[in-house]
């Protein structure tokens, strides 16, 4: 079965916001997430395929509600929990 990220041809997502944004990040935390991804991957804590799989395994509702880098952050946290680096709930208030 296709996972939620496999949207090609799906109808109902509406109009495209074609704004030509040239800023790579829209908040500081987005840059930090990219930094975390590259640093942790370079150390072999997870690899690109595991990371991609972690994004694509997100529950559909959560995936669609999340922004692009929010998905990255969710995937990083899921992988760190799976690898025993991070305790579940460790980032909660």
């Amino acid at each position: 079965m296709a996972r939620i990220n496999d949207v090609g041809g799906t109808q109902g997502f509406g109009a495209i916001d074609t704004t030509d944004d040239t800023e790579p990040f829209h908040a500081d935390w987005e840059a930090r997430v990219v930094g975390l991804y590259n640093t942790l991957r370079a150390q072999g804590i997870f690899n690109t395929n595991e990371f991609r799989d972690a994004i694509e395994s997100m529950p559909p509702g959560e995936y669609l509600a999340a922004s692009y880098y929010e998905r990255w952050f969710t995937a990083i946290c899921a992988l760190l929990e799976r690898k025993g680096v991070l305790e579940p709930g460790a980032l909660d208030d």
Partner: peptide, 26 residues
């Protein structure tokens, strides 16, 4: 943003990252 900062702090405490390495990666 708060959760990302918290993760950064935790990983720094574990010696897995430093702020400088993150800056370099960005």
């Amino acid at each position: 943003a708060r959760r990302v900062r918290r993760l950064e702090t935790l990983l720094e405490e574990k010696g897995l990252i430093t702020g400088e390495r993150l800056d370099e990666a960005i």
